[in-house]
């Protein structure tokens, strides 16, 4: 275990935490496919921000991703409500459309820049220790920490609104809570966590971090705060175990972490069945 290992596991854990916060609400709202949609559809936004700012970090990328994240949410709802097309179909067509535009943009750019399809689809967490930021701490750790803090503050401040509009939207609306606002706030949070996770695990695997720990926690949690805590712990355990697995097999770290998230879920499912019987 050297500094590099610790930095990689720490990055993965911070990224997981960023995904767990909106992930729990997505699972409870039965909207995880929205998370998948956003995590893919932000790609053109990220590429556009990259073109605009010339680098893969910083505010431009966060703004670009958040805007496209909200755009895809808006598009999905628009198609669904105004055109009367089923939710799954409108999600399917919208996000693949935007994601594909992003893929084309990346492939056009890959000759000139260090942005390539491989990195966009799968991420590359092994590069984390190479890209140092302030005080010799990797840039990714900085970004993930700051976004974690933003997400945690949003969660604490918006907790009541998020929970009531998730549990009972019509009651919430009847008491004057702006459920539409909380919906878009949640989607904004998903966009933020997607940006955080993008570089390290790539667009495809984000959904594993959004769903896995939250689904595991939903099996045991007796309250929403506990669900958030259990999901965070389960997600971080998956990061550690996944990293060990990847080192042993000399395989993709992001892949191994996603596998561990799945494994933890299935084991939890068995344990719960065992307890109930």
């Amino acid at each position: 275990m050297n500094v590099n290992d610790i930095q990689i596991v720490l990055t993965a854990s911070l990224v997981t935490l960023a995904c767990v916060i909106p992930g729990c609400f997505l699972v409870l709202r039965r909207m995880t496919m929205f998370g998948d949609a956003i995590s893919h559809a932000v790609l053109p936004g990220i590429v556009a921000a990259f073109l605009f700012s010339g680098s893969l970090n910083g505010i431009a990328m966060i703004i670009g991703a958040s805007l496209t994240g909200l755009l895809v949410t808006l598009l999905i709802e628009l198609i669904q409500k105004k055109m009367r097309i089923s939710p799954d179909a409108s999600i399917g067509i919208t996000y693949t459309f935007l994601f594909a535009i992003g893929v084309i943009m990346v492939s056009l750019l890959s000759n000139q820049t260090d942005l390539d399809q491989e990195c966009v689809l799968y991420g590359d967490i092994t590069l984390v220790p190479l890209d140092l930021g302030m005080w010799g701490i990797p840039r990714q750790i900085w970004i993930a920490s700051i976004l974690d803090i933003v997400l945690i503050i949003t969660l604490l401040v918006g907790y009541r609104g998020l929970w009531v509009s998730t549990f009972d939207p019509s009651f919430a609306a009847a008491t004057g809570i702006a459920t539409v606002f909380w919906h878009y706030l949640l989607m904004g949070m998903v966009s933020l966590s997607t940006v955080t996770a993008f570089e390290s695990v790539g667009a495809i695997m984000v959904i594993a971090l959004l769903t896995g720990p939250a689904a595991t926690a939903a099996l045991f949690a007796r309250s929403l705060p506990r669900m958030l805590v259990i999901a965070s712990i389960s997600g971080i355990i998956s990061c550690i175990l996944g990293y060990i697995l990847a080192t042993i097999l000399d395989a993709s770290i992001a892949g191994a972490i996603a596998v561990m998230n799945g494994l933890l879920f299935f084991i939890s499912l068995l344990i719960r069945k065992f307890i109930r019987n």
Binding site: L28, F167, D168, S170, A221, R222, S223, L224
Partner: peptide
């Protein structure tokens, strides 16, 4: 209209 499996007391 509510999901009663929601983690809440």
């Amino acid at each position: 209209t509510i999901d009663w499996d929601f983690p809440a007391s």
